[in-house]
């Protein structure tokens, strides 16, 4: 599904990613871990197509197509979803209106008919219950005045609404209390199917108590220095990231 090969990325002429290789297949759940400043969020940004990240070499193939050639919205239409680390507030734009536009744009691109107002509202209600997002939040402006936890739940809610093939969740767990964390994890688990894949980017092992990854990768100084199964996460938890430094240098 997703093949990242020898990816080098700079932001403001500073090299952040230094040769990333990663392959994600349908049905898989990957966790990417790493200390602050290791390039985790940059990886998420490059997958979603943020303008300020600059790919200097390497390639990203998504379902056989060149992902880097696509506009952000085209990636979204083709099923790439980014759960933002800092979801932005858009004053005045209601969640309902926002989601309706997003869902229908996607349907249009896929040659499907637009959802009727009643079908759409039904879908909204269903999915907001699914992630435990309070109903009244969907009547508010996008992320405006949401608490940190509400914003993150809102990201999972949108993920449920758009039903993506590849979800990248950028630090969706940071800043959450345990209940919110469980709700987010629960949402991710329930959305997991054989034909979709999820990449969870996180700093803490905590989330992985609730989301069981098939693979854990450690990103360190712009490179994936270790890949293994979920036991790696536990090892990291136990030894901290310092331990890596020695590992890498050896």
């Amino acid at each position: 599904m997703l093949k990242i090969k020898e990816l080098y990325v700079t932001i403001n002429d500073q090299e952040i990613l230094k040769g990333i290789n990663l392959e994600v297949n349908p049905g898989e759940l990957h966790a990417i871990m790493g200390p602050n400043g290791s390039g985790k969020s940059t990886l998420a940004s490059v997958l979603a197509g943020r303008e300020e990240v600059n790919v200097t070499s390497g390639s990203i193939e998504y379902n056989g197509e060149d992902l880097l050639e696509m506009d952000p919205e085209e990636r979204a239409h083709k099923g790439v979803f980014l759960g933002f680390q800092y979801p932005v507030e858009i004053p005045g734009v209601s969640m309902v209106n926002f989601m309706k536009t997003a869902v229908n744009e996607q349907r249009k691109q896929r040659g499907m008919e637009e959802l009727s107002a009643s079908d759409f509202l039904k879908l909204m209600r269903e999915k907001s219950e699914f992630v435990g997002l309070k109903n009244n939040l969907t009547n508010r402006a996008v992320n405006e005045g949401f608490s940190g936890g509400e914003k993150k739940r809102n990201e999972i809610f949108q993920m449920a609404m758009l039903d993506p093939a590849l979800s990248i969740l950028d630090e969706t767990d940071s800043g959450l209390d345990i209940d919110a964390l469980k709700a987010v994890a629960n949402g991710v688990n329930k959305l997991k199917r054989k034909d979709n894949a999820t990449v969870v980017i996180t700093h803490y092992q905590r989330l992985l108590d609730y989301i069981i990854p098939d693979f854990v990768h450690v990103l360190y100084k712009g490179k994936i220095v270790k890949s293994s199964d979920k036991s790696l996460a536990l090892e990291l938890e136990e030894k901290g990231y310092d331990w890596l430094e020695k590992e890498v240098e050896v």
Binding site: P72, E73, L82, V88, V93, A102, E105
Partner: peptide
């Protein structure tokens, strides 16, 4: 804000529609 437009783009809303949304929200 560019970040607002990007957020919309990421949800599959193209730049033009995103601006429409934001402007109508603003007004």
């Amino acid at each position: 804000g560019e970040d607002q437009i990007f957020y919309c783009n990421q949800r599959g809303i193209d730049t033009e529609a995103a601006i429409g949304l934001i402007v109508n929200g603003y007004a």
